[in-house]
Amino acid sequence: MSCSRMEKKILGYVDGRLKESERLEMEKHLTTCAACRVRVNEFRAVNVLLDELPAIEPSAAFDIRMQARVAAEPVKQSWWAWFAPSPRVVLAAAMLLLAMVWLGSRGSYTDPLSAADIDKINQNMPVLENYDVISDFAPLSELPPPVQADDASDTSSNQTM
């Protein structure tokens, strides 16, 4: 193993994170390479020095502030929650259904037509038919508009003059 190939593995070796085969290969290299042995020792020294930095503890206020922030978070409703019926909606729907059933059970009563009514309709039927024909009669729409009453009085006065 060359020194350049070894570089990436030095840290893993120092940490003890290499695979067994890689570790053995590294140790074989270290027996013949003084420069890499020095490098390994120095990396170990750096590792030990980094341990000298003490850790800090969370402040007493951290938990209190965190709890307050979580409590202030809005409750997230899922999309499906929209379909979940609320008690008030269920009650209103039940009342509406009952009312419809009650109205339906009463039935709709309508008086049948009497014979006199039928005769009357039959008598008026030609008038209704004529009205339908005249209302849709195209030539009538081409006639000039009817003369206004004021115009008619003006015309009669002119004639007298």
Binding site: E7, K8, I10, L11, F43, A45, V46, L49
Partner: peptide, 22 residues
């Protein structure tokens, strides 16, 4: 691995007096 190697190399140089002592 390259990133970590470069970082430890820099630390080794920056902390050379302490590293030698250690």
């Amino acid at each position: 691995k390259s990133l970590l190697f470069r970082a430890y190399e820099t630390l080794r140089v920056e902390l050379a007096p302490l590293v030698a002592q250690q």
